[in-house]
């Protein structure tokens, strides 16, 4: 019986009856095309299975949140929700603003000034997500009497991350400052987040 070793060149192959077939490359392409087509088909089927776990339309229909600031006295903070996550709105006292401005920028893990984290002329309004940038717990410090940590801002009880009065990370495992969401003042006492 003829085998591939029996003087058949790489451009040839042996048919079922032992005859030598010329120009077999075209047949190889058929195989490659069939496998490639099957692969694409499998990918097209896997994609919706994976993608179905991404946020659905009702979750993506994110509304904006309006927050009334009029009742927040200096030194107080409120917790509200934005996209099902906690949102901290804090009315900083002049002492807290001074404490935030006194920190040398070079000492920070995630360098940002208080000015960059607040709106122009509204440096006393610190609006951040209440989501620790480490693993997502809600830091303490917004509610009355809660532990504000060694830097007078927020303290996360999960793994001990401490934030300063500008919500900047100062110690612990969290990599970045508390996120400032997109928001704007629609009046002196109202902000719209989102």
């Amino acid at each position: 019986m003829a085998t591939l070793d029996d003087g058949v060149s790489p451009d040839q192959t042996v048919g079922p009856g032992g005859e030598v077939l010329e120009n077999p490359r075209r047949r190889d392409y058929l195989q490659i095309a069939a496998i490639a087509f099957g692969g694409v088909g499998a990918g097209v089927v896997v994609l919706p299975l994976v993608n179905s776990m991404n946020p659905s339309a009702d979750v993506l229909a994110l509304s904006v949140t309006e927050v009334d600031l009029s009742a927040i006295e200096p030194g107080q903070a409120i917790k509200t929700t934005f996209r099902k996550q906690p949102l901290f709105v804090r009315n900083l006292t002049p002492a807290e603003i001074a404490a935030a401005d006194a920190v040398p920028i070079g000492d920070l893990r995630d360098p940002q000034t208080l000015e960059e984290r607040t709106k122009e002329g509204k440096a006393n309004w610190l609006v951040t997500l209440g989501v620790c940038t480490h693993l997502g717990c809600v830091p303490l410090g917004a509610g009355a009497g809660e532990n504000k940590g060694p830097f007078g801002g927020y303290f996360c009880p999960c793994h001990g991350s401490a934030y300063d009065t500008a919500g900047r990370i100062r110690s612990g495992p969290a990599p970045t400052n508390l996120e400032v969401p997109v928001y704007e003042f629609t009046s002196d006492t109202t902000i719209v987040v989102g």
Partner: peptide
């Protein structure tokens, strides 16, 4: 929240993976 947060530590694609795992921005 914390355990899906592990995946957000992955550079570049971490947050995308976490949102995919949760199907949203927070557990719900």
């Amino acid at each position: 929240q914390v355990i899906t947060g592990f995946f957000s530590a992955i550079p570049v694609v971490g947050d995308t993976i976490r949102i995919w795992l949760l199907g949203g921005y927070a557990p719900d």
